[in-house]
Amino acid sequence: MPAQPEGDPAPEDGALPAGAVARASERTLSLYVHVPFCAVRCGYCDFNTYTMEQLGDGVSRDDYHRDAAAEVRFARSVLDAAGAPPRALHSVFFGGGTPTLLPARELANMLGQARQSFGLAPDAEVTVEANPDSVTAETFDVLAEAGVTRVSFGMQSAVPHVLRVLERTHTPANVPRAVGWAKERGLGTSVDLIYGTPGESVADWRTSLEAALEMDSDHVSAYSLIIEDGTKL
């Protein structure tokens, strides 16, 4: 990964540095909620994610939505203490990990806390990342009712042998079905693809790209596979 630009030192008391709120009224405000749970850790992933086996005994997903909601409230208090002007959220993104490993009602509760703490702009985009095998039609009923506007599906490939190398566990046929469920409920959709997997041919890539286009999603993201230090791959 490229080096991040240098910023202001973080104050030891946990407050925001003055530069973080300078001209804040001129900028939009967004919220990223990280859900660090995965059923299987993919061999190429260097994100902050964990399977339950990696976390060990005594760790549960059950309390995560309450902890995350508390962090949202804390973030608002820190901004207030720094003198940042109140601003409604321009966008909210639930990423991971696999957010849809949590019950949809818990994702809705976290979004509700964000709305209560900050408010949502009338045109706010609210996105949830999803694994095609961890959702049902009812998942999208709950998410749409809660105010989610878009679902980003981790497709990666439509070719089974490519998915096996990436250690993706979803069934390719479940991707268009899940996208269809989301679209039926008026949700925007996007699908993510990865190209350059060892053993993937140009024909394999064409198969995946054509499968993604056939779903008629609002957006397709294509990422080249990067082998990160310390990952299994």
Rank of each mutant, 00 (worst) to 15 (best):
W205Q: 06
P103Y: 10
T139H: 01
V220M: 00
V78F: 08
S30H: 09
E138V: 02
Y223K: 09
H161V: 10
T51Q: 10
S117W: 00
G97Y: 01
V92T: 09
H34F: 15
D62Y: 06
A173K: 15
L79Q: 01
K183G: 06
I227F: 14
A114Y: 12
T28D: 15
A108R: 10
P17L: 13
V159D: 05
A69S: 10
S134F: 03
P17V: 08
P2N: 12
V202E: 14
E210P: 04
R73V: 10
A146Y: 03
S134P: 03
D218C: 10
A222E: 07
R61F: 00
E53G: 09
S25D: 14
G180K: 03
G188I: 01
L233I: 13
G186C: 15
A222W: 01
E71T: 02
W181N: 04
V78A: 02
S208Q: 12
G83Q: 11
V59T: 09
R105W: 04
S208L: 10
T49Y: 15
V191C: 02
A114P: 03
R185Y: 06
E53P: 00
E145F: 04
P85N: 09
A75K: 02
G154K: 07
C42F: 05
R73E: 13
S224E: 06
L120V: 14
Y64S: 15
E228V: 08
R177F: 04
E214H: 14
G43S: 14
V40S: 10
H170A: 14
E12M: 07
D141Y: 02
V135P: 07
L89G: 00
E145W: 03
A146I: 04
A146H: 02
V175I: 11
F118G: 01
H161E: 07
G56N: 08
W205V: 03
V21Y: 00
Q4N: 09
P172L: 05
H34Y: 06
M1F: 14
Y195C: 15
R115T: 08
D67G: 08
T231Y: 07
Y32W: 09
T49W: 02
